[in-house]
Design a protein around this nucleic acid. Sequence first.
RNA 1: GGCCCGAUGGCAGAGUGGUGAUGCAGCGGCCUGCAAAGCCGUUAACAGCGGUUCGAUUCCGCUUCGGGCCUCCA
Length: 454
Amino acid sequence: MIKIYNTLSKKIKDFIPIDKSHIKIYVCGPTVYDKIHIGNARPLVVFDTFVRLLKYKYPKVTYVRNITDVDDKINDRLISEKITLKDLTDKTINDFQKDCKSLNNLYPDYEPRATEHISEMIKMIENLISNEFAYLSKGHVLFNIKKFPEYGSLSNRTLDDMISGSRVEVADYKINSGDFVLWKPSEPNIPGWESPWGRGRPGWHIECSAMSKKYLGVQFDIHGGGADLIFPHHENEIAQSRCANNSNSLANYWMHNGYVNIDNVKMSKSLKNFVSISELLNRFKGEAIRYFLLQSHYRAPLNFSNNSLLEANTSLSSLYRSVEDLSVNGDPDKEILTNLEDDINTPKVFSRLHYLSEQSNKGSIEAAQLLKNSSPILGLLENTSDNWFKTNSFNEDDLSINKLTQRQILELIEKRAYAKIKKDFELADKIRKSLDDEGIVLEDNANGTDWRYK
RNA sequence: GGCCCGAUGGCAGAGUGGUGAUGCAGCGGCCUGCAAAGCCGUUAACAGCGGUUCGAUUCCGCUUCGGGCCUCCA
């Protein structure tokens, strides 16, 4: 039985699907105006791991992760960089997908773009207006939060709380300070679409409501995203979807991952204290980044540092030693599954991985096989160990950092072997040292000498 | 101001009302020409103060410190 923490009830609950023959999950994807950073990568990896578990447990899972390609931050870029919407978003989406792949994420079943669902959004807004949940004011369409009595239940706040804490001047076209925009007019120089309310663009939240409805229906099992989306994004999504669909639930379970911090402060684009994935991929393997992101519990904050990535790499190496070149042949380890089912307790999973690794090192073939068999559900250890140890080119573009070719390395190993036969240990050690300086470690074993990158 | 979360060994990070995960680092040993890896052993923690209890790191209260949200954000 899968147990997950539900932000709605603030409790860990058994996961009971609407239809156990078909699980439906929606996760908020990126707004594509810039490269993603490691904080953005956390939900991608966490929910990818969770979806792998769901797909193992249930016959059919539909995983939708949207791409928000209409947004005011995007518009700012269009003006400052003098490029078209399509050029900017295509390029950013391309980078995003490359990063996702490097992190070993499976492709979602649907990855809908907001701009391709404008008509669905307009329909939903029209519905909200005709049922008086939304109103027109100075060219804007706004959602009236007082029409939805449960407003605030996800983020655990009341309307009074919000008024007292308001740090933003209330726009004069709003009835209530918390009313949010469904549609707003576009000036001629920024992207816009024709609508019953003139040329304009959707507000931030409506795209997720429209797209989740299209791909998953009015009610689905799980909605996920980063904790910073709880308010206002998900709160507003619930309000507008439930009112438009006249339903008593949008998603039954809401899951939110904690932040990635840097120097114990939340990493965010607005604070400019972020490290992009593509930058990290120049120094670390994607799988090491994935390991790092799963090393702590998904709801806890995770502090980023260079050293933690190095440690993740070392830990992964020790696991890779134990799986060698085994192929997946059977089910994942039971205990790993149990730990994953327990609100995605990946730290416990890792503890078990290292236990299996140790057993494998002591000669247990079963343990090694279990380790390997658990790799598909984690998206880790899917490589061969030879591949893991003999690759140090992290980005495809950076092959040039391989200063020595494999052939040159093997030649040096051979040279050292002769030196060893002649008991010229001084030369042998000199060769070892010179390779070490290039980041290459030699390991003498029964079959001769093997090499790996540090 | 309102609401919320956290404080575990040198670092990272689970968990538990009583036998002290796991990783990285360290120390001793085995192995090795030397290493590396591995194995064996080992050091080391539960912010502070009260309370409940036979017993609390684990439950409750207070204090201190750190962080987050209150319409940019994964």
